[in-house]
């Protein structure tokens, strides 16, 4: 059938151009379309990555949405497919379906303070939005990145964070749960950084990404600080087999996380957070 060309379940081949080890179990891949052409996406969207014969896994895009030549994914190897992705070498080809999902509403935050609250590898799906914000820096009030990691060894994109920290037009604060080695920075959970403020709560949009529990508490901390629920956004994670709303796996209340999310406005889902095993 002619509809075959539009089959949303067929992947497009991408070649691995570069692999960078980020943490012991986390790596960043740069991919280019094997058959030419570019790739456009919006910050916060994800792709389904297919490893030949192994399977598919949804991974958020961690690169710059302003860059269309290459596709960047940062992945933690925790399962069969992500483990197989970890074993790929430069030149290997994987399948890509996407981009899918609702992005971070970066442009809707123009004119406001923009606060990124990240936990662990949750910084990866936020990075495209940080790039986009910094490419439009003059359109925002403050741009703050508040980042919490387990230990100093678990801090993702360390060098890049150092560069951000060195900028005068960006406020960056990092905290760890457990200080190790020569860590001389903050110790405590990321919600502490939110509590310290430094942004204008009435005029702030916050993008939160990390483990679900961390997002719940971060959203509460933002709310306590005076940021409205309608100005807080979180990125959800659920089991996904198709990424396009056909397989039913990612349902969360009335939502399909793949197509109604992964980015949700906090006021639309705050009630769901408190329902167990939803």
């Amino acid at each position: 059938m002619s509809a075959h060309a539009k089959d949303p379940m067929l992947p497009r081949p991408f070649r691995v151009e570069k692999v960078k080890r980020e943490l012991s179990d986390t790596f960043t891949m740069e991919l280019v379309p094997a058959e030419g052409g570019g790739f456009s996406f919006a910050a916060g969207q994800f792709n389904m990555l297919y490893v030949f014969g192994i399977g598919e896994v949804p991974i958020s895009i961690s690169g710059d949405p302003g860059e269309h030549e290459r596709l960047v994914h940062t992945t933690r190897a925790v399962g069969k497919v992500s483990g197989a992705l970890d074993a790929l070498k430069v030149g290997d080809v994987i399948g890509v379906r996407g981009p899918y999902g609702i992005p971070w509403p970066v442009e809707a935050a123009f004119g406001r303070d923009l606060v990124f609250v990240a936990g662990g590898v949750g910084l990866a799906p936020l990075r495209p939005a940080i790039y986009q914000a910094m490419a439009n820096r003059e359109r925002f009030g403050k741009v703050m990145v508040l980042y919490g990691a387990r230990t100093p060894e678990d801090i993702l994109f360390k060098k890049e964070i150092e560069r951000w920290r060195g900028r005068f037009d960006m406020d960056v604060a990092v905290t760890v749960d457990r200080a190790t080695g020569k860590w001389g920075g903050n110790v405590g959970v990321v919600t502490n950084l939110v509590a310290k403020g430094g942004f204008d709560p009435q005029n702030t949009t916050a993008f939160v990404c990390g483990p679900e529990v961390m997002m719940r508490y971060a959203a509460q901390a933002l709310e306590k600080k005076g940021v409205g629920r309608g100005s807080i956004f979180v990125s959800m994670e659920r089991n996904m087999k198709c990424g396009v709303g056909l397989c039913g796996h990612c349902q969360w209340g009335t939502h399909f996380v793949c197509k109604d999310g992964p980015v949700f406005r906090y006021d639309s889902i705050a009630d769901l957070f408190s329902i167990r095993e939803l």
Binding site: G53, I54, G55, E56, K241, C242, C247, G248
Partner: peptide, 25 residues
């Protein structure tokens, strides 16, 4: 309508198939 996916290969790993199977919540 829920489905899952299943990936198979031949023994040599030269031929792979991807199947969609009914699943249950």
């Amino acid at each position: 309508f829920c489905t899952t996916v299943e990936d198979t290969t031949d023994l040599k790993g030269e031929h792979a198939e991807r199947w969609r199977n009914w699943d249950s919540c």
